[in-house]
Structure formats: structure tokens, C-alpha cells
Design a protein around this nucleic acid. Structure first.
Lengths: 322, 322
DNA sequence: ATGAAAGCGCTAACAG
DNA sequence: CTGTTAGCGCTTTCAT
């Protein structure tokens, strides 16, 4: 009754009721450890997040949680903080706790390749979001960051901006590199010569954006438009621009990436590239759980690429100033 | 060797080395389920968050995680989404998974009283943040929200604002009520008559703040200053004010609560009341783990109240406009 | 100091 | 279809 085995076992309503009443009365709860020990699987997946304080992480986490929950699994969260030791610690913990699979969420740098493979080698199914391993067929779901960068930059080019700067993410960040590739492609397509001095190294967040923007403003030729690796960075840059007495978009146009909720509320509202985060996370979780449930083979591989969408708001529009 | 039992057991360096080498080679990891089953405890605590998509949650979670990690525990996260069924589900899961204790993080409404007591009755130690149970001595760590509301309102009163509106949090939210109590006290202290029409019901986030502010602006007498339940709501309100062609702080002064990072970067920068979140979460985790480790008695009780701090920025300062 | 054995709560397999 | 049993991997206890 308790395990709800519908198949090939019949229980009378009466018995069933009695059991459930007893469960209630005794406050009985199955002991998951014992069950897992016996079954040899934990019905738990490990979720690796690179930095849970980022606004993006919360949304990803919620999406994953909902799917995991729906499918009768639970999850173990790790906050890696882009730190190798923490990563090692948590992957060991996953092994100790016998997770059935691991979901890597939007890892920002190359740190984790070894860790991903360690899990894989152990026979633990792994799915990645926003990341792929060039030489290994590990299922992954990602947004077309190159295209996103291209679209954002083209949007600025279409407004007749030519001197467009790029604010990178943290050093070595793969996603940032992809978005920058798109940016450079867009420039190249229009025959604009790109200069290294158009790029400033930022970080994930407000402060990184602020500093990178300051650096850019200190340079001899100030850019007319800026494309930032993500929205938080763009908002940091926005503040820096303001603190110099300049105005967006009049003096400098600005485009971000992610479409965080706040992007629609900032002053000016922020033009940005939307990522279908929810779909990305949902799909990734689905693939992992399908593998665990035997609906997909253990060596299943597919790379899913989702389309980003440009969201035009005020921070990049000149006509707004009439 | 593996369990690092220093006490009353001696192992030669040589043996020790050999063991560790073997562990490495065999890729051995203790099976936590078996251990937990045998030991009768899981070294895991349950963490109940009300809404992990809120920027605040990430910071709280990280702080808790660090302490939990440092003390050799792990945690099980639940995202309640202010939903009773989810709460029930997760508390049952906690019981199934045999968590040793439960930490309730900043629960927003009265929903959880029953759940908290259910854990308590089961003999599972519980610690609360931003919440107390009136009739039950359950350890809790909170910010003095009344004082925070008082300080924020006094700040506005000191700037000679008299018609000050309050934007509440979600309906039934306890913390919101406390902040509002402070607000009303401050008004009363100065002999200002409070009117119900000065209050608008918001929510946790941007959208709630936007709508509540719109509502306020539609009323016959527009407030001269606004105190919002939290920063996100304040930022939503800011947008609403702007969308009506008004300016902060010239037309309307604005104060938030929380001091999210973004508050220092918005336009204008947001005056707010800082909560020592990290300290709050650190302390709460510490108490829970101390109880679990036997450093504090199982029935330990203390209510810790932390001091909020007013952070004055541009959104509430008139002189800035000279 | 080392080794053997029992048993945590559960489930799968098998016998009746 | 019901009841019994073995054993998952670990730790603790007890005997050597």
C-alpha cells in the first residue's frame, strides 16, 4: 500500500484505508536511507551551481527543483563559488550520498571539466547546461550565445553606433567568450575594425561592471555604445556612466544579456538579450531524469541549442530622446 | 583511519599512508546511507526557504551553506514558494531523509506554524530566522523590524515629509506587519495622524511594488514620500513613479528595506535599511548545529535580535537637488 | 590492538 | 497471494 505498487498486486479498499490510518496514527515515514541502501539508488540528483547568490541561479534552481520534484526525485545542492576545492568536496559528497545523476548548471569556467568526467567515469549520468565538453558526448542544453552576442551588437550597429565596447565576464569564462565571439563577428560583418582597447574585463556582477566601465571611460576614446556580458554587469556600468555625469542612452548606449526582471525596471530600462532559462533548465532536468528512469539510454547524447531573443528597451534607443 | 578517529586509537604513519593510497586507488567513498542508517543520524539538516528566486534567498543560503559545510554537515534545500502543500511535502521528505535538524529561513507568513511544531514534536531541533512563535520557546534570530521601520520613517520625517505612504509586503506577511508597526509608531511619535489611505498592498517583488505604487498615485492625494516593505518593491515603485513622469526624490522620496546590492546602483541610489543577513543566518545555523553537536541542550532557547542600520542614499535626500 | 558479529530499516526474491 | 528471509555497507560492541 505504502509504495503504491499498482501493478500485479491488489489491495482491498478496506485494508488500504486501515494501513493509511495506521501510518497517520503512528506518524510513520519510510526511512529513505534504508531504502536507498537496499535499492542501491538514492532517487537523488546532485545539482552543481556556480554561484547561488547570482539572481539567475534562483530561477534556474526553482525550475530544476520543480521538475525533479514532479518526477519523484530530490536533489542535493552545491554552491561551488567557482572554487576548485569546493567542487572537489561536493563531488565527493555526491559520491558518498550516492546521487543517481548530476546536473551541472551554467558553469562559468573551465574548472569543472575534470569533475564532470570524474562523475561520468563513475558511471553516473551527467547533463550540462550552458556548457559543453568538446571531446565528450555529454548531453547539454545551451543558449546560442554567439548568436545572442551577434544580435545585440547588430542592434547597436543598426542604430549607427560604430565604436562599440564589450564588457567581458570573469576571466576565462566560456560563455563570455562566446558572446564576445558574436560581438566580433557582428563587427567584422560590417567591416568595422575591432580594437583590443574596446574590451574591458568585468565580472559577473554590479561591481565588476562598474569598474570595467570606469576603466573604459578613462581611456582616451570613449565608446559610444557598450555591450555587457550580462545584465548585472550592465547595471553596474550604467551607474559608472551616470557617476561621470553622462547619460544613457544619449551619451552612451547600453545592452545587457539575460533579461533579468530588474532589466525592465531600471532607469533607463535595459535593452538585453533574453535567455530561455526555464526551458533550458527544464529540458536539462528532463533529459537527466529520463536517463535515470531508463526512458533514455545511459549513453544518450544530444546537444540542444536554444534561441536567444533581443529585447529592445530604452537604454539603446536614440529616438527616445526626441 | 578513514573516520579520522584521533582519540584512543593510534595508527602508524605507514599504515595510514597505505590505507589512504588504497582509498585513492579504489576510488572508495563511504556510503553515507549505510552510515546514517547505522548511526541513526544523517548529519544533514533541512533548510526551508520561502522563495529561492528572491535575491535575498541566495545570500542567506550561501551563508548557511558555509557554516553547515564548515561543521561537517550537509543540507537539504526546500523551496516552499509560500505554498502549504509544498511545505507539507518537504517536511515529510525531511522526515523520510532523517534530517537531524531544520532551519527555517525568513518565512513570510503564518503558514508554517504547524509545520514548525510538527518537527519540534518529533524531537527534531528547529531554529528560526526572521520569525518567532509566540507561545513556543523555539530559538530564533531576527532583525528588529519594528525599529527598522521606525528609523526609516523617522528619517523621512526628519526631512519634513509628513504625508508618508507605506507599501506592504504580501498579505499576511509578519515581517511586513512589524515594519509597518515601526512606521506607525514613528508617525504617532510626531503626532501625525495616520490614514488607511496611506497604505497600499504590494508583494515581495518589482511587480508588486509597481502596482501598489500606481494605486497610490491614482488616489486623490498623492504621498510626498514612500516607505516600501523591501528594496525590490521600492524599485518597482520607483519605476511606477517615473512612468508617471515624476522624479525621485524631487517629487516623491523613497526608502526601501534590505540593502540589496542593487540598491547602491539604482538611479537614484536607494536609501534603505540594512539587515545583517549574514550574521543572522550564521548565528541561526550555529545555534542549530551546536544543539545537534550537543554543545547546547536540546531545549535551548534564545531569541537574538539584531540591529538594523539606516543607509542614506539619494532617493530620500532633498538637498541633493540644489 | 585486532577480529567477529549483530543489526540499523528496508526490499526483492523465493517458498509456502 | 501471503510470509519469511537475506543482505545492502556501515558502526559499535564484545570477545579475543
Amino acid at each position: 500500500v505504502i509504495n503504491n505498487r499498482i501493478s500485479h498486486i491488489t489491495v482491498s479498499e478496506w485494508t488500504r484505508d486501515k494501513v493509511l490510518k495506521a501510518v497517520e496514527k503512528l506518524n510513520y515515514h519510510v526511512n529513505d536511507q534504508a531504502r536507498a541502501l537496499r535499492r542501491g539508488r538514492s532517487n537523488t540528483i546532485g545539482v552543481v551551481a556556480s554561484d547561488i547568490t547570482q539572481p539567475f541561479s534562483g530561477l534556474m534552481l526553482r525550475t530544476v527543483e520543480q521538475e525533479v520534484h514532479r518526477r519523484g526525485y530530490s536533489f542535493l545542492l552545491s554552491d561551488i563559488q567557482n572554487n576548485r576545492e569546493r567542487e572537489k568536496f561536493y563531488l565527493d559528497l555526491f559520491l558518498q550520498k550516492n546521487v543517481d545523476g548530476v546536473l551541472f548548471l551554467a558553469l562559468s569556467n573551465e574548472l569543472e571539466e575534470e569533475g564532470i568526467l570524474r562523475m561520468k567515469d563513475r558511471g553516473i549520468p551527467v547533463v550540462l547546461t550552458e556548457r559543453e565538453l568538446p571531446d565528450n558526448p555529454i548531453p547539454c542544453v545551451m543558449v546560442d550565445n554567439v548568436k545572442g552576442g551577434l544580435t545585440a551588437t547588430e542592434h547597436l550597429l543598426d542604430q549607427d553606433y560604430r565604436h562599440i565596447a564589450f564588457l567581458t565576464g570573469p576571466e576565462g569564462n566560456l560563455i563570455s567568450r562566446q558572446r564576445m565571439d558574436g560581438y566580433r563577428q557582428a563587427l567584422a560583418n560590417r567591416g568595422i575594425e575591432f580594437s583590443d582597447s574596446w574590451v574591458a574585463q568585468g565580472g559577473l556582477g554590479l561591481e565588476g561592471g562598474y569598474r570595467a566601465m570606469e576603466e573604459l571611460l578613462d581611456r582616451s576614446d570613449r565608446p559610444k555604445a557598450v555591450f555587457a556580458f550580462n545584465d548585472m554587469e550592465a547595471l553596474g556600468a550604467l551607474r559608472a556612466i551616470r557617476d561621470r555625469g553622462l547619460t544613457v542612452p544619449r551619451d552612451i548606449a547600453l545592452v545587457g544579456f539575460d533579461d533579468l526582471p530588474i532589466a525592465a525596471y531600471s532607469e533607463p530600462t535595459l535593452t538585453t538579450v533574453r535567455q530561455p532559462v526555464e526551458e533550458m533548465c527544464y529540458r536539462a532536468a528532463e533529459i537527466l531524469l529520463d536517463i535515470l528512469d531508463g526512458k533514455l539510454p545511459k549513453d544518450f547524447y544530444r546537444k540542444s541549442v536554444l534561441e536567444p531573443a533581443l529585447i529592445v528597451r530604452d537604454s539603446s534607443i536614440k529616438k527616445d530622446l526626441k
